[in-house]
Write a protein that binds this DNA or RNA. Sequence first.
DNA 1: GTCTTGACTACACGATCGTGTAGTAATTTG
DNA 2: CAAATTACTACACGATCGTGTAGTCAAGAC
Lengths: 202, 202
Amino acid sequence: MDRPADDLTARARIRDAAMKLFTERGIEGASIRDIAAEAGVSSGLVRHHFGSKQALREACDRYAKERMLQIGEELVYQGGAAQTDVSAMHPITMPLQTYLVRSMMDGSETATALFLEMVDAGEEFTKTLPTDPSDRRAYAAVLAAMKMGVFVLRDQVSKAIGEDIAGPSGYARLTKAMLDIFTIPVMTPEQAEQLRKYSEEH
Amino acid sequence: MDRPADDLTARARIRDAAMKLFTERGIEGASIRDIAAEAGVSSGLVRHHFGSKQALREACDRYAKERMLQIGEELVYQGGAAQTDVSAMHPITMPLQTYLVRSMMDGSETATALFLEMVDAGEEFTKTLPTDPSDRRAYAAVLAAMKMGVFVLRDQVSKAIGEDIAGPSGYARLTKAMLDIFTIPVMTPEQAEQLRKYSEEH
DNA sequence: GTCTTGACTACACGATCGTGTAGTAATTTG
DNA sequence: CAAATTACTACACGATCGTGTAGTCAAGAC
């Protein structure tokens, strides 16, 4: 993961460059020539290895999904906090999640499938909650979307707190804040009831 | 807002079409010709009214931001749940928020400025919480990112719960789930402590 | 040795992009 | 009324897009 770029095969370097630029500029915004330049190869080699831009994108989708699942298994094996999907809060999954959300927004089936699997796992998790949510499915879906949604606004959150959330210090603050949000109720039941009644009227 | 498209001026129709396509396909993914076709005008008219694609985008940013603030003021005036920014949870702001997040991801200063204002307001709000978060700024930033982030995964959340969250029924479930998440602690303090210790080790 | 195969580059293609220009129809102004 | 401004369209431009084709080069198979 942190080996110098020279140690990676050209195919891997192209894939990494594609994920980086797809994340930063969107799928349409990153051209094959840009990706090739980022990887230090010719644009023809991108086509040689992946066939088409769409196929390159799907290869990135599959790789990101596999890495996410793989990291999740490793973390469970290491025994760190089994109940919740810890992989979703591990720093090295941040670029993967950011990419996956970008790809989801542009209609990736692979990334959407991973999201639905996360919702399934989250729905099971709701059974361990102290208070049952009335709509387990919606609760799990919104929670999953919230957790992943944070990463698409990485630059904005970084700007708001004054340091990059990809760095050690910023990521620690991010994690702590997420834990606070998930531990401290944001609203009192009275406030929630007020909002609930209001939303039912409109 | 729900008047037929014929009642709107061409300029407004172009802006609405641009926001729709920018949201659906990303900034790069939506061409001026696409936008013109969606609005039912020639591509030249888009240029006539807005000058360039970049200027069109900035006009959309300003409009979305103004509408958000305007709706927020109206809701406060109507007296619905004053403490929290209710506009962020009102159905008619959903497309606006979705657009703003898309634009933020592609580096919009206007949209980012609105986000920072939301974080400022949220930071004030933390003072009313029953338990103080240790890092108000990070707490408010992450909470704002979570609330907005849900909307970028609108299609995925809709797929997960089996109905469109833009519809009345789906939106009610979405709202209820968000309220549950903000009311019921997702983790017990023990679980949070376990994760906190784990994340400090890595 | 030759032969084959896969990694890799150079280059040309049609399509589409944002933009520029020229001109026409409609509306407003005096 | 005429004049001027605005709304709007048609069309051509250079650049860049994804893709296709042809060919070079190195490494292993026989």
